[in-house]
Design a protein around this nucleic acid. Sequence first.
DNA 1: TGAGCGATTTGACAATTATCAATCGTAGAT
DNA 2: ATCTACGATTGATAATTGTCAAATCGCTCA
Lengths: 232, 232
Amino acid sequence: MPDSDYRDIRTLDLFAEMADEHFTALMRGAYVQNFPAQIELITEGEPSDFLHIVLAGSVDLFSAWNDRETSMATVRPISTFILAATIKDAPYLMSARTLEKSRIVLIPSQDVRGIFDVDNNFARAIVTELAQCYRSVIKAQKDLKLRTSLERLANYLIRQQHHAGGGAEFKLDFEKRRLASVLGMTPENLSRAFKGLQPYGVKVNGTLITIEDQADLRRFAKPNPLIDDFST
Amino acid sequence: MPDSDYRDIRTLDLFAEMADEHFTALMRGAYVQNFPAQIELITEGEPSDFLHIVLAGSVDLFSAWNDRETSMATVRPISTFILAATIKDAPYLMSARTLEKSRIVLIPSQDVRGIFDVDNNFARAIVTELAQCYRSVIKAQKDLKLRTSLERLANYLIRQQHHAGGGAEFKLDFEKRRLASVLGMTPENLSRAFKGLQPYGVKVNGTLITIEDQADLRRFAKPNPLIDDFST
DNA sequence: TGAGCGATTTGACAATTATCAATCGTAGAT
DNA sequence: ATCTACGATTGATAATTGTCAAATCGCTCA
């Protein structure tokens, strides 16, 4: 594994505090691979053989049932995914596919569980990571159950705007069909939802969004840190 | 704290493996209290001062936004809730209220975090617990995003039947308005959903459910362990 | 026993969301 | 530059779900 990758991974909260020898041991069994876009990295239901880390590119976590499919989340560099399945040695609950050319690290789950047993700092970091993940899903659940699709879109745009620096203009960071799926609606419905936000000053031009009057949109969206603030 | 409570708590996976002295320390700061029904134990947004344990009774975890409210989960003895908020020292994401007369243990969050820092077995148990919680929410999310309300109800009934021992007859374990909220629908809609399952052999008499032909209902519900099996 | 209360059910209707088909627009290939 | 493929949009329609009001059921308690 290239040194730069090695260092990137080491800086992740999850690995930052663990003993050198344990980190080295983990990396020894790991391998890095470049995948093209649209490759299915893991399939739900399969045993969790590897903990994955996205170094570059992006990965879609999705799930299917009865011929329907939904995007659960997007993983961007640098972060891990499938940690809970790895730790529990349980089957994956979600599938994962690359959205673009991506650089992925694979760490054998067995190694992760082994080091987890002997490195207390690592175990503690895992707690923090899992607690964070758990709270994120709870927020997503609240978003889904308490809001209409129009409200979800409005709040998504506000979050995205903030994430992009807060300017009136910003770009959507993925294609609309996937955004629709993440927000729990159909692409057609998303298209109409964008129209439905026009009265609140939202302009859409392809992937470029303009929010003319933040306050106006916020009055409609009623963003709430207990749903929309992903940092806490 | 009575000895029997003390022992009950000690048998929880979360506390079973920790050092005696640490468990004793935790219990020293804890207190047990009996609450009547319909008492709001915690409110979302507030700092997480206590880890809660339900010894008897039951607790509803719910959340509100913009005058809407939804039930997220029900906690039954003996288990903890609000672990993630306690560990992260972050505000509660959900409120909690007793559904009936309940016996609750309150452990100061500060104590939990303190012991977490020094007791590695406790830290490991927390990892397992959080991973379990995380996976449960992911399953709930898939249930919500991939299924219609009729399908959610059908699968809920199948789970409930299994949980009740597998007989053709069983009782719903909470009132219908709350079931509706848990399943993400209105009480009116739930009432109609029960009707909608009649063709599949579901009979409803108050809180008593009869499933005449399991196979028939399963053909419609298409239960899936990656959504419906709460044990993995 | 029966009044009173709240939960549930029903009916009528409205809002939301999904589906299907057709068209548009654009980026990449030839 | 034109063609092609695919995602995005639009229109028409259907299915799903929610809302409101009224009726019904079941239970508690005087």
